[in-house]
């Protein structure tokens, strides 16, 4: 197959960057999208050029590092997959393919298609955990959890932190990611203990990072490689509103007033 590629090239975070056009012939339809970029990079290196930088690790849709905005959509035209699971047969011979990095104030470009997603890490650090001392492996079914709750929590836990939700959203909102991370713990007994502070702290950190707010366009749900849904955003909202009006977290000044 033959493709014309328009790829965003940017030397450094400070560089202005711009699109570069490349042509690639003899691409196998069975190649993955990342393999196609590998082939391009090999030819660029052979000519003494700088290869296109992009994030990748597992190449099987579980690590969440790969992420490219391909022809106007995160992870390309197919639903329910990450960029590494996309194959060239999803395109037509002779297509022009435009490849851009995720665009969001909170995801600054490091180089070419690589963006800094540490904002997600800081949100997790703010509350995306349960504080338990690890001991021996507990017995199965020691804590009863219904199948439907377990499944729902598992659905939320399948978030790989790729950032496609932010990339897809017209507001660059991170609410689907944050909601998935709040949901997966809020649903389970072990997570309930810290549910209030978790919701408060993670939302606060999300706001600090400068992500946009949700207009319920549902674009995130449509583009999420793990097909995580808006039910989790509704749950996050409930968790947050409930936590805010009933939690014990008050500023020092307010505590003094309480006396």
């Amino acid at each position: 197959m033959y493709f014309k590629l328009k790829i965003w090239r940017q030397k450094s975070p400070e560089d202005k960057g711009g699109f570069q056009s490349y042509e690639l012939d003899d691409v196998s339809p069975d190649m993955s999208f990342l393999e196609m970029i590998d082939v391009l990079n090999e030819s660029l290196e052979r000519k003494g050029g700088e290869p296109v930088h992009f994030d990748h690790d597992c190449r099987e849709g579980i690590c969440g590092t790969c992420g490219m905005f391909i022809n106007g959509r995160p992870h390309g035209p197919q639903r329910g997959i990450a960029t590494c699971q996309l194959h060239m047969r999803s395109f037509n011979d002779g297509d022009t393919i435009t490849i851009e990095p995720w665009r969001a104030r909170s995801f600054p470009v490091i180089k070419d298609l690589v963006v800094d997603r540490s904002a997600f890490d800081r949100i997790i650090q703010a509350g995306g955990f349960v504080s338990v001392s690890t001991g021996g492996v507990p017995d199965a079914n020691e804590i009863p959890i219904s199948t439907s709750i377990a499944n729902e929590a598992m659905d939320a836990a399948s978030c790989i932190g790729c950032g496609a939700c932010v990339a897809a959203c017209k507001n660059a909102s991170a609410m689907l990611f944050v909601a998935a991370k709040i949901s997966q713990l809020a649903l389970l007994p072990q997570g309930k203990i810290e549910a209030k502070t978790r919701a408060e702290n993670m939302v606060e950190q999300m706001d600090k990072e400068g992500f946009g707010t949700c207009t319920n366009t549902e674009a995130c749900e449509a583009e999420c490689p793990k097909e995580i849904g808006l039910v989790h955003i509704a749950r996050m909202n409930r968790e947050y509103y409930f936590a805010k009006q009933s939690s014990e977290s008050l500023s020092e000044r307010e505590k003094v007033h309480e006396g």
Binding site: K6, F19, F69, N71, G72, T98, E100, R103, A104, R105, S106, K170, N171, A172, S173, G210, F211, G212, T213, T215
Partner: peptide, 12 residues
């Protein structure tokens, strides 16, 4: 606020 959250728009 939402506009500021994406200072650089997508080309496509």
């Amino acid at each position: 606020h939402n506009r500021k959250a994406r200072p650089i728009k997508y080309a496509v």
